[in-house]
Amino acid sequence: MFSGIEIFAKPFAHNHNNSMTYFSLNTDDFPEWVKQLLLVLWAGFYSLIVAAVAIQFIFRYLCLLGAEVTKHSNWFQNILWVSYPILPGTVYAVLLYVLSMPDEYSDAYVKDAIFNNYDLVLDNLPRFIMATYTADGSVRWKNLSYLGSAGGIVFVHYAIIIICGIKMHFKMKQGLQMFSVANQKLQKQFFKALIFQSLGPTIFIFLPAIPVLLGPLIPLNGVEVSYQSGWLFSVIGAYPPFDSISFMIIVVEYMKVIKSRYFKVFTGKSVSSVNTVSDQSRQKGNRMYANC
Rank of each mutant, 00 (worst) to 15 (best):
209 A>E: 01
36 Q>E: 13
151 G>I: 05
221 N>D: 11
261 R>M: 10
14 H>I: 11
280 Q>A: 06
174 Q>N: 13
101 M>E: 11
241 P>Q: 07
89 G>M: 12
15 N>G: 13
32 E>P: 06
73 S>P: 00
127 R>P: 02
136 D>Y: 03
251 V>F: 09
49 I>S: 07
94 V>Y: 01
111 K>R: 08
247 F>R: 13
154 V>M: 08
51 A>Q: 06
223 V>P: 00
239 Y>F: 11
4 G>D: 07
53 V>Q: 02
9 A>L: 10
63 C>Y: 00
176 L>G: 04
4 G>F: 03
283 Q>V: 00
49 I>V: 09
164 C>G: 01
153 I>Y: 01
36 Q>G: 15
285 G>Q: 07
54 A>L: 00
157 H>G: 00
129 I>V: 14
110 V>R: 05
56 Q>D: 09
89 G>A: 12
166 I>R: 06
232 L>R: 06
163 I>P: 03
199 L>G: 11
126 P>F: 15
125 L>G: 05
231 W>H: 15
37 L>M: 12
74 N>M: 04
47 S>W: 02
261 R>W: 07
137 G>R: 00
26 N>A: 07
92 Y>A: 03
91 V>H: 06
277 V>S: 05
16 H>V: 05
233 F>H: 13
289 Y>D: 01
250 I>R: 07
105 Y>R: 06
242 F>C: 15
195 I>K: 04
156 V>M: 13
156 V>A: 13
280 Q>G: 00
112 D>T: 08
106 S>W: 12
90 T>G: 05
147 L>G: 02
106 S>M: 09
14 H>M: 11
162 I>V: 15
84 Y>Q: 07
237 G>F: 08
12 F>R: 15
30 F>Y: 13
102 P>E: 00
165 G>P: 01
228 Q>E: 14
16 H>E: 10
108 A>W: 08
278 S>F: 00
186 L>C: 03
8 F>N: 13
54 A>R: 01
140 R>W: 04
78 N>T: 11
196 F>Q: 08
199 L>A: 14
60 R>Y: 14
34 V>T: 03
22 Y>K: 12
1 M>N: 05
286 N>E: 13
234 S>W: 14
32 E>W: 10
174 Q>Y: 07
268 G>N: 10
67 A>N: 04
224 E>R: 06
258 I>D: 03
68 E>S: 11
57 F>Y: 12
172 M>K: 02
137 G>M: 03
185 K>M: 04
182 A>I: 03
273 S>M: 14
143 N>P: 00
122 L>G: 05
2 F>R: 09
273 S>N: 14
149 S>D: 03
12 F>V: 12
46 Y>F: 14
225 V>N: 07
258 I>H: 09
111 K>H: 03
254 Y>Q: 11
92 Y>Q: 08
46 Y>H: 14
185 K>N: 10
209 A>Y: 02
56 Q>W: 15
77 Q>D: 03
96 L>S: 06
61 Y>H: 09
217 L>I: 10
139 V>C: 01
7 I>Y: 10
278 S>A: 11
183 N>T: 09
162 I>F: 05
51 A>P: 14
9 A>Y: 12
41 L>E: 09
